[in-house]
Design a protein around this nucleic acid. Structure first.
Lengths: 227, 227
DNA sequence: CGTTACGTTGAGGCGAGTCAAGTAACGTGG
DNA sequence: CCACGTTACTTGACTCGCCTCAACGTAACG
């Protein structure tokens, strides 16, 4: 649980290859690396809770992290799923002193953790850092707006089809996809109950989608686009 | 429609008082003002369409602008409603060369329009501009994540209650609110059909909510919190 | 005062959540 | 390697919330 590791060579290599870090110049990179801590969390570990004082900005190195909110009755809704290379809490760099959601490891994960205040200061001083922050914030807004639109416009089978098509190489007639995580997590990402995801998959069978465990065969990509 | 206006004194005063501009230092402000154009649009005018080449970044000076997406059958879903002081398309400053949604004037609006490429360059050169961009992106992410969570966790009456509570002064027992726009627009903002909003309001009557046109009386704020 | 858009109300249908039961996959320890 | 327990996933039956369509009432505006 929450084993804190020294930053070894291998982790350093992985971290610096992440999109967020790879775009930094040598000086900005060095200064970012000063304040980083690499942590490991086991499945279902909670990284932080909604309402707690916001202290860290994260980059996922390995595994998947769920960001979710609770309503009064305790029902959970995922607002974002972060995988390798994704960052989260960049939206707390200005304006906001508490976490707006909970974060939980969906499986064993490795994350790099930065001090929010230090990154905030660095973004002021290092052009590269400011640019990188703007970039990941932009990406985050775009993907979140996409989620809102899909939630409001698409049925369950359509959401699944959209997800699958987004993970097919462009211009292919058939494809084979391996889900990078459990179906439960995919259901949450798409705003569905696990049962609804299951039913969506079986309704997609008639469009040539075969599911066996995490392996998904798509026999006719263009048919899937018609859903 | 789309009457282009010279930047007069009054508009300049309004523009520089907007949150996005007010935080800029004199030099950054001056350079931003070089590339700004103030436009007026009539109700239902389309500012841009999904898929078009992205060219402008906007700040609303007056009125409300709908950002929405269409599905294949032509159904519309609002992803964001922008009012006075709000900016949009800041998420296109990096990564993204086409608009991801449509923009339409929900009523007669005045908007300030900046050239995306110029703002992008300015954000590189002027620390103030970078800071302002990061700030409005952060705000945008937070509000959009909130929308996702509310869509997935709340029923129609709860969404309306949340909206109303967000527009009450804190620590009041009763309140009176005037909607800043049509109910149709509020329905879209909350991800509801207009009929569903209407029904939500009438179900809130039992919680002490009275509606007459755009005027909403809340007799018991704490009762509304229990919804 | 008529026209038009906006808003409300009712009836009906569909999509997805919930609950419950059963099956499959997985990991653990004997 | 097998027996077991746990967790993930599937399927069915049911409920509920919201969308759709249609009709009517109402406010806004020329």
């Amino acid at each position: 649980m929450n084993k804190r590791l020294m930053l070894n060579m291998r982790e350093r290599a992985i971290l610096t290859s992440m999109p967020f870090m790879a775009a930094l110049g040598p000086q900005a990179l060095a200064r970012m690396m000063e304040s980083v801590v690499v942590n490991h969390h086991e499945t279902r570990d909670v990284l932080f809770r909604e309402g707690e004082a916001a202290r860290h900005f994260y980059c996922v190195l390995n595994g998947y992290v769920r960001l979710y909110r609770l309503n009064r009755e305790g029902r959970e809704a995922d607002v974002r799923i972060c995988g390798p290379g994704d960052t989260f809490n960049e939206w707390l760099l200005t304006a906001g002193d508490t976490y707006p959601c909970n974060a939980q490891a969906a499986e064993p994960v490795t994350v790099a953790r930065f001090d929010l205040a230090k990154v905030r200061a660095l973004a002021e001083e290092e052009r590269d850092v400011a640019r990188a922050v703007i970039h990941c914030l932009s990406t985050c807004v775009r993907s979140t707006l996409e989620v809102v639109a899909n939630d409001r416009l698409q049925t369950a089978p359509q959401r699944v089809a959209t997800y699958l098509l987004g993970h097919c190489p462009a211009d292919c007639t058939s494809a084979s996809i391996r889900l990078p995580f459990q179906k439960t997590l995919l259901a949450g990402k798409l705003g569905l109950a696990p049962e609804a995801l299951s039913r969506a998959f079986s309704s997609l069978r008639q469009a040539g989608v075969t599911v066996r465990g995490r392996l998904i065969q798509i026999s006719d990509v263009s048919a899937l686009r018609q859903i």
